[in-house]
Amino acid sequence: MAYTYSQVTASNGVVLHTIKTSPNSVYMKALPGGSSLANQSTDGINGSFFDFSSGALLTIAVNNDVPVGGSQGSYGSGYENAKYARGTLVWDSREGEFSVQVVSSAASLAVVNRHQYWAQGGISMGLNNESGWAAQADKENMPNRTGSAQRAGLVYNTSKNIWLVVTNTNCTAAQFRSAIKEKVGSGTLVNGIFLDGSGSAQMRAGTVKAAGDGRKVFSMVALR
């Protein structure tokens, strides 16, 4: 797999671990039974919000319209953003385009070919919406937006690169977003989503790892 790992520190003190790669090197992967990413052999970062007791995936995680955790109609499979319409990052490989679409189900995603895309649900980051991103994140029921926590996210730029980003620095969503805008993409970023955070904010990039609190997570945004 071809990717570039970097560690950078923003002016607000947030330390970002980033993986830059092609969207065609990315796929959604279930971790049945749960696993910390430090124990995985696959590189990538944590993915969906999940139910701690059951491991059910609470946000979309699909490859070519197939949810990673079960069938399209089953709860926790990764085919739906449970309870709320939420910002979902979509790579339409047929069209060669990224988008962030606010939907409740993968069935509602606008793609050219339903067998040629991947999608990961999260919370809209609104990189092009300084005045309204926080209100939109609240509308999508973002957990702990203003609290101090570890964070994870996905962002893309005008050249169709994607960055997988994790910080194990405790920070607000605004501080994480600001650090990304300052240090990632050299001013070319278009948009992105927040992923599950807190102790779930984990990355594996070869021997480099951002550990979160080492808890088990149940899906990841993985690299081929």
Rank of each mutant, 00 (worst) to 15 (best):
Q7C: 07
P32T: 10
N128I: 07
S186H: 12
T18W: 07
P143A: 02
G121E: 12
V62S: 06
T172I: 10
A174T: 15
P23H: 04
T9F: 08
G122I: 04
W133R: 00
A10Q: 08
L31P: 06
V14A: 06
Q101C: 01
R177V: 00
N46I: 09
Q175W: 03
H115A: 12
G73C: 05
I45Q: 01
S200P: 03
T158K: 14
Y5M: 11
V165F: 09
S35A: 13
R177T: 02
N81G: 02
A149I: 01
A135Y: 08
F52W: 07
T169M: 11
R86Q: 15
S93L: 03
G73A: 06
I60M: 09
A152E: 01
T167W: 00
V90L: 12
A222F: 09
E140I: 13
R145G: 06
A107S: 15
V184R: 06
L154H: 05
N157P: 04
S48W: 04
Q101K: 09
V8C: 03
R151V: 05
A10S: 15
R145V: 09
I193P: 06
P23T: 10
S71C: 06
A10L: 08
G153R: 03
S74M: 04
S105A: 13
Q202C: 02
A82R: 14
E97W: 04
I60H: 05
Q202L: 03
D65Y: 14
L57Q: 07
N128V: 08
L58P: 00
M142S: 11
G121F: 03
L89G: 06
S108C: 05
T42A: 14
W133C: 07
F50K: 08
G47S: 05
A110E: 10
Q116A: 14
G13L: 04
K209Y: 08
G147T: 08
V190F: 05
N81M: 07
N63K: 01
D65L: 08
Q150L: 04
Q120L: 14
H17P: 04
A201P: 03
V166T: 03
S35Y: 07
T42F: 06
N170L: 14
